[in-house]
Design a protein around this nucleic acid. Structure first.
Length: 598
RNA sequence: GCCCCCGUAGCUUAAUGGAUAAAGUACUGGGCUUCGGACCCAGUGAUGAGGGUUCGAAUCCUUCCGGGGGCACCA
């Protein structure tokens, strides 16, 4: 019997009870079980408010009368009405056996579901510009993008992770112009610099020079026109500098554990965008204004501008050059054409809420039926202590610097505890712990929440942090490893991968900590589904943290290997194994690696 | 001017309209003869202000106060 079976069986009892007492058609009530907020309320609970509303009955009365109908059996120990709630306590041995054997049998696929089976989803994330290195905001975006992709995969969707590279435009021309003017033929190689940082330096140089020289702006516009016309020299420079950037980005992706299945380049999609604009003109969805620019009028729901006029979006400048929106139209169509998507998710900051709302409205107005599958996963800004990050002013937390810094701190902590580690082992552990801390810190709050980056808190390894959860996992690994050498019977069980789990006497598990732990494990699969539905990985963060916390409490009070007797040791070992699997799964969903030793 | 988001403990956050508002951090005090102390236990401490809807509001509506983001030819 697995967890789903238990829930279904309880629900069946409830439905039978309601049918008997109230003669109601239970199909229309759509009953479902919840998890009570407190261990003392049992393992599962039915909130009677919903049913009461539909039945026109008093929720207390429903809870009480139905409770009387449900007598204890070999599954249910107690059904109890507490106010408007109907709480269920499942027999401990059934509960522990179900959860442990299900998790251990499923192992890596524990928590997975098939609710998204047959659905194709694209997650576009990161989407960097090729004029400067990645910064803290990109790390948040990358962490979110990977976590969301992992969640959709775990719920059975076919996921395509896409990176839309913003490789053209004025901003790119700025670094190109600066290098052309003052670069003296230098390269990342000649300067011993990572390519993206090298190019970024020229972007900063441009901004500084432009303050003194207004004419530079015109030169940049000239360069952009030359680029759009396909001037060979300009294209050559563009290709060279972009290749330096990609080289640098590749290294950062690897450090961050970011993966992509598809790359889109705006230099490839803006032409398609222009075609769509032409088509929209013909259909009369857009119009040309007196200057010659192509315009879309937003509907009333978007509000009015300061003059009280309807709001507009420019789709093509009067000189025929494309804008951001032009490119996004092209890319959107390309995505759906190439991958036959059901859903297309854009992981982009909340400052672009208006842009994406407009984009989706335009696609809908053009009559694309797939437009309703477009969704903006909007996330909050990352603020530095001094204010918003501004790359033009060099006020950013550089991604590579931060990763390096976190690795250093983790290394220091490891060396405090364990000397004489090989350099490879030390660096490998430090990288996992450092990255775990950053990702956890950025994912632990709701995506829409702005983050005020607190350097001290972000580098902490104590409390509600990634390393805390990794540490709990390392403890489970320690127990499993030690059990294998300490005791023949336990070693046998581990070697057989708990094949004889049926013989374990789970009725020996009686403590509150063991029960709390089992409840956290039971709730995990539902959390994965909710986190996916809500586009909210912080639910997983919260849940694995709570699991780790309960495990630490259990660990502190109840010895496993040296338990009072061998049978109890076996049961606890199975619970530890199940916890290990769940913690690893949770961390991996967040893109955080687990460690056997820290 | 208009639109959107936010305001919970000193600080950072949590809570499908539902059970005693939950954690971390900071502060105070306690815990290693034990499978790893990056740990565990205890204490102090909160829904910006007013009005409304509801059996029930941190959550919905409204006014005010405070903070952030956005408002076509930047991305």
């Amino acid at each position: 019997m697995n967890i789903e079976d238990i829930k279904n069986e309880i629900l069946k009892k409830v439905e039978d009870g309601i049918e008997k007492v109230f003669k109601e058609k239970i199909e229309e009530l759509k009953l479902y079980l919840e998890f009570p907020p407190n261990v003392n309320f049992g393992d599962f609970s039915l909130n009677c408010f919903q049913a009461a509303k539909k039945m026109g009955e008093n929720p207390q009365k429903i809870a009480q009368l139905v409770a009387k109908e449900i007598s204890p059996n070999d599954l249910i120990e107690k059904a109890e009405a507490v106010g408007p709630y109907l709480n269920f306590k499942v027999k401990n041995d059934v509960l522990f056996k179900s959860v442990c054997s299900e998790i251990i049998t499923k192992d890596e696929i524990f928590g997975n579901s098939e609710i998204g089976k047959g659905k194709r989803v694209m997650v576009e994330y990161l989407s960097p510009n090729t004029n400067k290195p990645l910064h803290l905001g990109h790390i948040r975006n990358g962490a979110l993008g990977m976590a969301i992709s992992n969640l959709f995969e775990a719920t059975g969707h076919a996921v395509i992770k896409a990176n839309l590279i913003n490789d053209r435009g004025v901003h790119i021309c700025k670094s190109m112009l600066a290098w052309q003017k003052w670069g003296e033929g230098k390269t990342p190689e000649s300067e011993g610099k990572k390519g993206d940082h090298f190019v970024g330096d020229w972007y900063v140089r441009y901004s500084k020079e432009a303050e003194k020289n207004e004419n530079l702006e015109n030169e940049v516009q000239e360069m952009l026109k030359k680029w759009e016309k396909g001037d060979p020299e300009t294209l050559e420079l563009w290709k060279t500098m972009n290749s330096w950037v990609y080289d640098g980005f590749g290294k950062t992706y690897q450090r961050l554990g970011l993966k992509f299945d598809a790359f889109y380049y705006e230099s490839n999609t803006y032409q398609l965008g222009k075609d769509i604009v032409e088509e929209g003109l013909k259909k009369g969805v857009f119009y040309r204004d007196e200057k010659g620019a192509v315009i879309f009028e937003l509907p009333e729901e978007f509000g009015r501008d300061e003059k009280g006029e309807i709001k507009k979006v420019t789709l093509l400048r009067a000189d025929g050059t494309s804008v951001y929106m032009t490119q996004d139209l092209g890319t959107a169509l390309l995505k759906f054409n190439e991958y036959n998507l059901d859903q297309s998710i854009y992981v982009v900051g909340s400052e672009q809420n208006h842009h994406f709302k407009s984009l989706f409205k335009i696609l809908e107005s053009l009559g694309y039926s797939w437009a309703k599958g477009c969704e903006h996963l909007s996330y909050g800004m990352v603020y530095l202590p001094e204010g918003k990050m501004k790359s033009r002013e060099g006020k950013v937390v550089d991604a590579d610097d931060l990763i390096e810094e976190m690795g250093k701190l983790a290394r220091k902590e490891i060396e405090k505890r364990e000397k004489n580690l090989s350099k490879e082992e030390l660096n490998s552990r430090a990288a996992k712990i450092g990255m775990g801390a950053i990702k956890f810190y950025l994912l632990r709050v709701h995506p829409s929440q702005d983050i005020y980056f607190n350097p001290e808190e972000s580098i902490s390894f104590d409390g509600f942090t990634g390393p805390y959860c990794q540490y709990a996992y390392a403890r489970t690994a320690g127990i499993l490893k030690n059990a294998a050498v300490a005791d023949v019977a336990l070693a046998d069980m581990l070697r057989n991968a708990f094949l004889d789990i049926e013989k374990i006497d789970f009725s020996l598990l009686k403590t509150q900590e063991e029960l709390l732990l089992a409840q956290k494990l039971i709730q995990f699969p539902d959390e994965i589904i909710s986190a996916t539905d809500e586009f909210n990985p912080s639910r997983i963060v919260q849940h694995i943290y709570e699991t780790a916390k309960v495990f630490n409490q259990f660990y502190h009070l109840h010895p496993v290997i040296s338990a009072e007797n061998k049978e109890l040791a076996k049961a606890r070992l199975a619970l530890v194994k199940a916890t290990a699997i769940a913690l690893k799964k949770g961390l991996n969903l967040l893109g955080i690696e687990e460690l056997e030793k820290m």
